[in-house]
């Protein structure tokens, strides 16, 4: 019986692994540098300070071209901001509301219940000012690119001089990690571009790391709850499985 369980386990794991490995390996062309993240692993959590720094980078740099449409200002409580701070942050933006009693649309300051206000009214407007390229919404970018946070950080730090034999098209930029290497976005970060409230150095690498963490949170805001619940569920199921094993053994004792 032990042998059979073992066989079963080996067949299951080997089969599963064999199928799955290639699916994920087919993703990226250039090997991404693996960075350390506070949210790595089964017990990893978001670093609130890092998320706030990342939010600052997004707000002061990325938001000039990229929307974050699936995130609401109220969600920023997860970064450690209080209600008043969030109201202040939201009120810096203006949204079109209405129609009012006279049937007119009007502008008003954004509230915590509003979505992040994007830089463009529509895709056409975005393309017309970006040389025909559309800066994608960043709400899900960490989940919609193989490599997630590692990819975002790599891309932001991956701008290089193009190899001599490659002609970079007009308006394009060479990036080591971008698929096809020619990206419409110019290197967005320069050292000292933002000034952090804490002592963290504002190097390109640090800002890239911080904003990648922020965007990971934006894509998967419930990760911490998920992992915490997962630990409890696994403990419960393991104990329950052990109990069922003992029960089974006891009942089957006379048969074997």
């Amino acid at each position: 019986m032990k042998k059979q369980i073992l066989t079963l386990a080996v067949v299951a794991v080997a089969g599963f692994g064999a199928f799955v490995a290639p699916v994920n390996a087919a993703g990226t062309a250039v090997e991404l540098p693996k960075r350390d993240w506070s949210f790595d692993g089964a017990l990893g959590t978001y670093d609130r300070n890092q998320l706030q720094r990342g939010f600052q980078v997004y707000k002061e740099v990325c938001a000039a071209c990229h929307g974050l449409d699936r995130v609401f200002y109220r969600n920023l409580t997860a970064l450690g901001y209080n209600e008043e701070q969030i109201k202040t942050i939201a009120s810096e933006y203006s949204v079109v509301d209405g129609p009012d009693d006279e049937g007119e649309m009007f502008d008003r300051p954004a509230r915590p219940s509003d979505r992040f206000v994007g830089p463009y009214p529509n895709i056409q407007a975005a393309r017309s000012v970006n040389n025909g390229a559309y800066p994608p919404d960043l709400s899900l970018i960490a989940k919609s690119r193989a490599g997630g946070a590692d990819y975002i950080a790599a891309l932001l730090t991956g701008y290089e001089q193009a190899p001599a034999d490659v002609e970079v098209m007009a308006g394009m930029h060479w990036n080591k990690y971008f698929n096809g290497h020619q990206i419409a976005m110019a290197a967005p970060l320069t050292d000292g571009q933002v000034s952090y409230a804490d002592e963290t150095p504002t190097t390109v690498d640090q800002m890239a790391q911080d904003v990648a963490a922020f965007l990971t949170w934006a894509a998967e805001p419930h990760m911490e709850v998920r992992k915490r619940m997962g630990v409890k569920v696994l403990i419960f199921l393991s104990i329950f499985a052990f109990i069922m094993y003992r029960v089974k053994r006891k009942i089957w004792r006379d048969v074997h």
Partner: peptide
């Protein structure tokens, strides 16, 4: 009882995927 035990073991694996690697089998 034997099935219940087997189901529990399978659910441990299922739960692991759901809570700790929910997008492992998914495509970006």
């Amino acid at each position: 009882m034997k099935d219940s035990f087997g189901i529990c073991v399978f659910l441990v694996f299922f739960a692991f995927m759901v809570f700790f690697a929910p997008n492992y089998l998914n495509h970006a």
